[in-house]
């Protein structure tokens, strides 16, 4: 299955959340891979703590592949190549976890040529043979990468795909997320142009809220009653706004709580980070785990 991760605005935690979903899915026993399609800023290696690819690879990555310079993009076995000691041993029963990084110094493409599209179709088809889950991390906003993803999936009717739209729980982000999906030249409009059926495509898109601060969260214990009441009111307004914009509960796949570890150091959160060093919150890991299950759970994707 292909899963595309996209957000309208930057700073949603799209990449770090996607990486953690991939990691959780691998722990649950699936073969997974992560494709860095954020062509303007190929830094996925940093999240997986693969220092040789922290700014992209020099061995021919996504850029080289799409430009036709290399036959196969460089692949990194994260279990073997990550610098983080705690991740280096693949637990028994866990699946493959492979990173396809961009090229160091690679930039955003200026167009999607027919050649690139064919390469993309070929790449997706081959990875689908090998991996249960291929997570494609697109950049923020409308991009050639997103256009290519829509065009390629339209040519691959037999390959299941899903889209995750990441947004923060703010007024601006909710409106932006709605616009990215349903606005002018949004995913649906562009998808239809490439041959997708609008309704079917819409059924394959879900939202993920990130950096969510629940009004009843433990962190807010010390707030004054007036502050709490104001927060509750804000949250109610946001929920109302989200509902109106089609970004409400029914179209939401999951939410990730605000966690300092994710804010300050974008990284995979291992069970050890929660249990031994206790730098991360158990709720965060639970949220990742939940998302990793729901992403492949058909009942969470029934037509709205």
């Amino acid at each position: 299955m292909l899963v595309f991760a996209i957000s309208d605005k930057g700073g949603t935690g799209r990449s770090v959340t996607s990486s953690n979903i991939v990691y959780r899915r691998a722990l649950q026993g699936s073969d997974v891979c992560y494709l860095d399609f954020d062509f303007g800023s190929p830094t996925a290696g940093a999240i997986f703590s693969v220092s040789s690819a922290a700014r992209g690879t020099i061995q021919g990555g996504m850029h080289g592949y799409f430009e036709g310079r290399i036959a196969d993009p460089h692949r990194i076995d994260i279990w073997a190549e990550t610098d983080r000691e705690g991740l280096r041993a693949k637990p028994p029963g866990a699946g493959q976890m492979v990173l396809f990084p961009g090229d160091e110094g690679g930039g955003e493409f200026s167009t999607v040529s027919e050649e690139m599209l064919r390469r993309c179709v070929r790449l997706f088809t081959r990875l689908e043979e090998e991996f249960d889950l291929c997570l494609v991390d697109l950049s923020a906003g409308r991009s050639f990468a997103a256009q290519m993803a829509l065009a390629a999936t339209a040519r691959l009717p037999g390959v299941p795909f899903r889209w995750l739209v990441f947004h923060r729980w703010t007024r601006q982000h909710i409106i932006a997320a709605h616009g990215l999906v349903r606005g002018r030249q949004g995913l649906l409009a562009a998808g239809v142009e490439h041959g997708h059926d609008e309704e079917t495509l819409a059924d394959h898109i879900r939202f993920v809220r990130t950096a969510v601060l629940e009004p009843d969260a433990a962190e807010l214990e010390g707030l004054r009653e007036t502050q709490k009441a104001w927060l509750n009111e804000c949250d109610r307004e946001l929920r109302e706004l989200a509902r109106r914009y089609g970004v409400g509960r029914t179209s939401m796949l999951g939410k990730i709580p605000l966690d300092p570890v994710l804010q300050w150091r974008e990284q995979l959160i291992s069970d050890e980070d929660v249990l031994s060093s206790q730098i991360a919150n158990a709720e965060t890991v639970a949220a990742f785990d939940d998302l990793a299950k729901k992403i492949v759970d058909d009942s969470a994707w029934e037509a709205l």
């Binding site: 062509f39 303007g40 850029h63 799409f66 430009e67 036709g68 690679g106 930039g107 955003e108 493409f109 200026s110 167009t111 040529s113 050649e115 690139m116």
Partner: peptide, 9 residues
């Protein structure tokens, strides 16, 4: 002219 080009390449 239609060959793949990378931004700032």
């Amino acid at each position: 002219g239609g060959a793949v080009q990378v931004a700032m390449g």
